[in-house]
Design a protein around this nucleic acid. Structure first.
Lengths: 168, 168
DNA sequence: GATTTATGAATGAAGG
DNA sequence: CCTTCATTCATAAATC
């Protein structure tokens, strides 16, 4: 024993590793997709053979605990940089260090951890995204017949810098 | 409240609350039940209307084009494993075959091609990525000052060799 | 509080 | 094998 959580304050405890959790999420997602397909098929079938055997699903389709419109299994929280962290990150990014090395990532993470919860993965992702998006934005500007992309729309001009406009 | 230490000196961290775990279990149960019912029902239906519309279950349980996220299916540039393919891949991966040989890749590809478009390169890449990422994905970024793992990180080596604990 | 946008994270593929 | 990049997905934040 020893796993009991007496306090209603801190109800969590050991259960699974992140990886195991991720695999689980995937599995559930697979189930969800299979279910969806089956339902669609059944609908198609019953549409033609409605009185086949009187065995229709009806409300047996029963919606599970998933939110309508998607399979939101577990609400995975994502990191959000604090203003201070963002400021530091932006500054480092503008220094043109390009892609920070692993060691650099560690250092940055350590520094940023002084201003809020953060991990090296967060820092790595941030730089990857920052770089990829600033590049994408510029490319979009250069293309003559570009249309709406899946990501953010291209800015009209930012020849000297690609800071993102921050509306109030 | 925070992280706990397992009985075997295995530092497992908080991941889900008891409540969340319960919800998850319930959800899986519901999905399983729905799948069961639908499969049984469809079997019964197709037993009588085999040539109904040429749509029998078989490998059609999984639509080849839907993503696990349940989004639209625009012509995709890069390969995306179907749920069924993913399931098979995961199973093979967990069998500890480690690095699939060239021959093995061929076999796997052949099997998976029954469930959707796929090439040997896709299979090869999948195993490479799966292995590389599983190594880094498990115990990482929950501890405040712990070194988080990711593709960005390149630690030397763990003496215990915690590559991937295979839950049996 | 529903919809849209911004952006953190996941992942297939390429390069070394 | 390991690292890196491009693209996509999902969600916190912003907006209406």
């Amino acid at each position: 024993g020893g796993e009991a959580i007496g306090d209603n304050n801190v109800p969590y405890m050991k259960v699974m590793t992140d990886e195991q959790l991720e695999v689980l999420r995937k599995q559930i997602s697979i189930y969800a997709t299979i279910c969806e397909n089956l339902v669609e098929m059944h609908k198609a079938v019953t549409a033609q053979q409605d009185s086949l055997a009187g065995m229709r699903l009806g409300n047996l389709y029963c919606d599970p605990l998933v939110t309508p419109g998607g399979h939101k299994i577990t609400a995975r929280q994502r990191w959000t940089p604090t203003p201070m962290q963002l400021q530091i990150l932006e500054r480092i990014f503008e220094q043109g260090t390009g892609t920070p090395s692993k060691q650099k990532i560690k250092e940055i993470t350590h520094e940023l951890s002084q201003h809020g919860h953060i991990s090296e993965t967060n820092v790595y992702n941030w730089f990857q995204n920052r770089r990829a998006r600033s590049k994408r934005k510029q490319v979009a500007n250069l293309l003559p017949n570009n249309n709406a992309e899946s990501e953010a729309d291209a800015d009209e001009d930012s020849p000297t810098g690609e800071k993102k406009p921050k509306p109030d």
